[in-house]
Nucleic acid binder design. Structure first.
Length: 303
DNA sequence: GCGTCCAGGTCTACC
DNA sequence: GGTAGACCTGGACGC
């Protein structure tokens, strides 16, 4: 067994109200490569890619003496890459997101006061919108284990390797270079295969620019329409993407979320979606974040 | 071992 | 605009 020595350490000051554990464990993304985490949620691993898409470097992100610390076990001379790792980490953990209005609202909604007390509500995301888009496609109409399998296959087959063999998330160009049959046979993506090819080709050829969706210029309705114009992105996937883009108007209801709501608020009886929407109406444009935190509260109680 | 169901849905054709 | 049916995979479950 070898012990790795951290050669580079990057420090980032967290915002005033920030919980590393609640951000890392906010949803399943931390379980999808190139993310990984330990049981305690005190450490997050990610393999970063430089701007050229040719160099990959694995890093461990944790809290050390109150500072967010990115530890890298190899020497990197490229200051631009180090700056990118710092920016990507801030993006992943949503350090720039202001949740104060959301916290004010949950403070007066008794049952959800824990959210502001625990500093929860920051949803972990990937460094790029492209990566989140591909992963979201892989969550549709399948079990979580199949989502993990598809994303793991993608990273293993098409990701750039670091010096010690860790793999980064594949670039749009790498994905666009593969035929539909590859996604069916090697990735086991089934009917999603043509969607993955179409998105990768559109991004690689700059026909669409997912990173531009982070801009606040588009209204949420316009953004949702643009998302739904992407093949494979329906209502659930569009609303899930909107959450990852920091817009929480939609509930992103899927079978799992509905089942959790029935269990927690409807005596395990099914109900229509309108009943669920009405339940979170008071949270206004934060309703999507409110339902997600409400339905995942027990994840943190069990930890 | 085999068949069926279903899971963190979407698309298309048809009415 | 609303709805039925097809679409992939793989784990769980009943037999």
């Amino acid at each position: 067994m070898s012990t790795k020595i951290d050669r580079i350490s990057i420090s980032i000051s967290p915002p005033e109200r920030f919980s590393f554990k609640h951000t890392v464990g906010s949803h399943g993304w931390s379980d999808l490569p190139p993310f990984s985490t330990g049981e305690s949620l005190s450490e997050l691993e990610y393999t970063f890619l430089d701007k050229s898409g040719l160099k990959a470097v694995p890093a461990k992100i944790s809290i050390v003496n109150g500072e967010i610390t990115v530890s890298i076990s190899e020497n990197i001379d490229d200051k631009i890459f180090l700056e990118k790792i710092k920016r990507d980490t801030a993006h992943i953990l949503r350090l720039d997101e202001d949740l104060s209005e959301f916290y004010e609202i949950v403070d007066v909604e008794g049952n959800l006061k824990w959210i502001s007390e625990k500093y929860a509500g920051r949803l972990l995301r990937s460094p790029t919108v492209f990566e989140d888009l591909i992963k979201t496609i892989c969550t549709t109409n399948c079990s979580w284990s199949l989502t993990k399998s598809m994303v793991s296959n993608l990273v293993r087959e098409l990701g750039v390797s670091s010096n010690d063999g860790a793999k980064a998330f594949p670039t749009a160009s790498a994905m666009a270079s593969q035929p539909e049959s590859f996604y069916r046979e090697s990735i086991r993506a089934g009917y999603r295969a043509p969607y993955l090819v179409e998105i990768a080709e559109a991004v690689a050829s700059k026909k669409i620019d997912p990173e531009s969706w982070l801009s606040p210029d588009l209204s949420t309705a316009e953004l949702k329409n643009e998302l739904k114009s992407v093949k494979g992105i329906g209502n659930y996937a569009a609303e899930n993407m909107l959450k990852l883009l920091g817009r929480y108007d939609g509930l992103a209801l899927d079978s799992w979320l509905r089942a959790q709501f029935y269990k927690k608020h409807n005596f395990e009886e099914t109900c229509d979606d309108k009943t669920i929407r009405d339940f979170y109406e008071n949270f206004g444009s934060w309703r999507g974040l409110a339902i997600w935190c409400d339905m995942t509260q027990r994840w943190f109680e069990e930890n």
